[in-house]
Amino acid sequence: MVEGKQKWKAWLYLAPAIVLLLVFTVWPIINTVRMAFLEGYSGLKVAGGESFAFGVGNFVKVIKYQKFLSCLKNTVLLCVLTVPISSLLALLVAVFLNSIKWLQKPLQTIFFLPYVTNSIAIGMVFAAMFNIVGSFYGTDNEIIVTAGIINNIIEFFGGKAVNWINYGSSYAANITVMVIYIVWNALPFKILILLGGLQSINKQYYDAAKVDGTSRRRIFARITVPLLSPMLAYVVITGFIGGFKEYTSIIGIFGEAMGPADAAGRLNTMVGFIYDALSTNNQGRASAAALILFGIILVVTLINLQVSKKRVHY
């Protein structure tokens, strides 16, 4: 047992951290829940001395909101597309990197670059790469000049330039760009984790498999993937959690309009929706949306954990 005086000392040392956590983490969470259940809660109205009735009105309003449903759709779509693609690609790159000796270090550095680069900056570069410059859109005098390297490549191989992100671009094209950008941006962290995992696998398993004449495909499927499964699970779960918080990537490419010039807000996400609600002083609605997002992430993570219980070998 710790002596009484010792106990006080312990609490004293813990106090700075606890106070900060209470003020900046615990209280905001409690306050979010409170605001979410106060009908039509707004910072402005609080200042005006109004009081709010308790109820689930905020949630009802949010769910009925067309903009919210579109945000939800974008978020889920990006998540479902990018997490499997980036995880799989990261696995392949990691296995490839791990199997070569020559150039491993320089390649590792190249693959890791996106991680240390500002994501807004990356977004702007991507926007430039996918750019298409056109004017007099939709008229007979429409002029299209392709300045983006992607379209230049497509045209070089005899294809037709695609309007990826500019005025008049299609939703599918926008989403394609976003998926490429998010996957590329998510790769380095995943590669790092998986490469670490691969390097910690005992080489003797591979020697044993070699002596037994195991084919490369079987080695990959029966040895590498199962032994890497804890890392894979980690990468997928954090991928989904990160995916549901997607926001800066959209800003990076489309700017604050969150969509092409003729369809502003088309690519908005859940976090974007919450942000918009906050900036228009609808804290009640923002809180309700945040709780819904929290619920979705919770459910998805629980499903992930449930699946990994069967598939992951610790």
Binding site: N202, Q204, Y205, D207, A208, A209, K210, V211, D212, G213, T214, R222, I223, P226, L227, S229, H313
Partner: peptide
Amino acid sequence: APENRGVGLVFQNYALYPHLTVKQNILFP
């Protein structure tokens, strides 16, 4: 190559596949 020599090798720390059962380990080759 080792697989064409018809050798069985027991490693110093056994190198049993940790995610497979004893039966699956023995069946593996």
